[in-house]
C-alpha cells in the first residue's frame, strides 16, 4: 500500500518520494547493472543515468502492467546492455556462463571489502544449485526472455518457468533461515 502511494507521488514529480524510492532500490539496481557491465565506476554512472531516466519517464510507468521494481529493473538492464554493446564487449558471450552474480563472493572474499554483504549473500545462495544461479542470473540480472534463457541453458521453454519457480522458492527458504 505504502509503495503504491510512493509511486503515485513519484509520478506526480514529488522529489522526496523519488528520494525514498532511490533509497529503496538504487543499491539493487546498481548491482544488477554491474553484473552486466562489470565495471563498478562505470556502473555507478550508468546507474545514476538510469534513475534520471526513470524520473524523466515517470509518466510511462503503468502499475497495471507490472511491479514498479520490475519496471526500473528493466530500464537498468537495457541501459547496461546498451553500454556493453556500444563498447563491443567481444568476449561477453563467451565469459557469460562463468560470470554469475555470485562471483562477487569470491573476489570480495579476497579483497575483504565490506561493500558486499558476503555473509548474507552466502547464506542466500549457499545451497542453490548452479543451475539455479544460472537461471536467476539470466532472468533477473540479464533480462533474458524465457526463450533466450531456454536456448542459453539448452532446456525446453516450459522448464524455464518451473525450474525458476523452484529456484526462487529455495531462495525464499534460505531467506527465512536465521
Amino acid at each position: 500500500m505504502q509503495l503504491d502511494l510512493l509511486v503515485e507521488r513519484f509520478q506526480k514529480k514529488d522529489a522526496s518520494a523519488f528520494e525514498t524510492l532511490y533509497g529503496m532500490y538504487s543499491k539493487n539496481i546498481c548491482g544488477v547493472i554491474n553484473t552486466i557491465v562489470k565495471n563498478e565506476g562505470r556502473s555507478q554512472e550508468i546507474c545514476q543515468d538510469v534513475f534520471v531516466k526513470i524520473w524523466n519517464n515517470s509518466s510511462s510507468y503503468n502499475a497495471s502492467k507490472g511491479r514498479f521494481f520490475t519496471w526500473i529493473l528493466n530500464i537498468a538492464r537495457n541501459a547496461a546492455i546498451d553500454e556493453i554493446r556500444s563498447r563491443s564487449y567481444k568476449n561477453e558471450k563467451k565469459n557469460l556462463s562463468a560470470d554469475y552474480f555470485v562471483s562477487v563472493l569470491e573476489s570480495r572474499e579476497e579483497e575483504s571489502n565490506a561493500t558486499v554483504d558476503t555473509k548474507g549473500l552466502k547464506k542466500l545462495v549457499q545451497s542453490l544449485k548452479k543451475k539455479c544461479v544460472q537461471i536467476i542470473e539470466l532472468l533477473y540480472f540479464r533480462g533474458y526472455t524465457q526463450k533466450e534463457a531456454a536456448e542459453e541453458l539448452a532446456i525446453p521453454v516450459g522448464t524455464v518457468k518451473t525450474r525458476n519457480r523452484s529456484c526462487i522458492s529455495k531462495l525464499r527458504e534460505n531467506m527465512e533461515v536465521k
Binding site: 546507474c47 521494481f69 554483504d117 526462487i168
Partner: peptide, 23 residues
C-alpha cells in the same frame, strides 16, 4: 517473490550508488 529478488540483488551488489544529492 519480489522481496526475495530485492534481497538477492541488494546482497550481491558491490556497487555503492551515488548519494541522492548527487543525482
Amino acid at each position: 517473490i519480489e522481496n526475495a529478488i530485492l534481497e538477492l540483488t541488494r546482497k550481491s551488489s558491490s556497487v555503492n550508488p551515488y548519494s541522492f544529492d548527487t543525482l
